[in-house]
């Protein structure tokens, strides 16, 4: 391993915090919230890959691959929802979507 596992985990932690801050600060903008979720999932992938390298097991990389597949499914559905909501209300401000009537 080229660097200690701790340094990889610190980098993953910093990236996760940045994603979390993005989601919490841009609560009004759905696109920026999705970007924050992407950053957080990348930080989780980095932690998995670092663990796989540290212990020499491929399981961590397999789970990183699962995260990639899960993210692509999640993003395609979420962006379809964004397009649908934008067609109805002409905005991506999350505070505007406060009614349940169909």
């Amino acid at each position: 391993m080229i660097v200690p596992l701790l340094h990889v985990l610190i980098l993953a932690g910093i990236l996760f915090v940045l994603g979390l801050v993005c989601v919490l600060v841009w609560r009004a903008n759905i696109i920026m919230m999705l970007i924050g979720i992407e950053i957080m999932l990348n930080a989780a992938m980095l932690a998995f890959v670092g663990g796989a390298n540290r212990w020499g097991a491929a399981d961590g990389q397999v789970f990183a691959l699962m995260i990639i597949a899960m993210t692509s499914a999640e993003v395609s559905l979420a962006l379809a929802l964004v397009v649908y909501l934008h067609r109805r209300k002409k905005t991506v401000n999350a505070d505007e979507f406060n009614t349940m009537s169909g």
Binding site: M1, I2, V8, I31, L34, I35, E38, N42, M45, V49, G50, A52, N53, Q61, A64, L65, I68, T71, S72, V75, S76, L79
Partner: peptide
Amino acid sequence: LGAPLVAVFEVIIYAGAIMVLF
């Protein structure tokens, strides 16, 4: 970190597909 396949998928799927979808 010794994960060439994950690196390739990161470029192809994340940077290539998901960001283009955004």
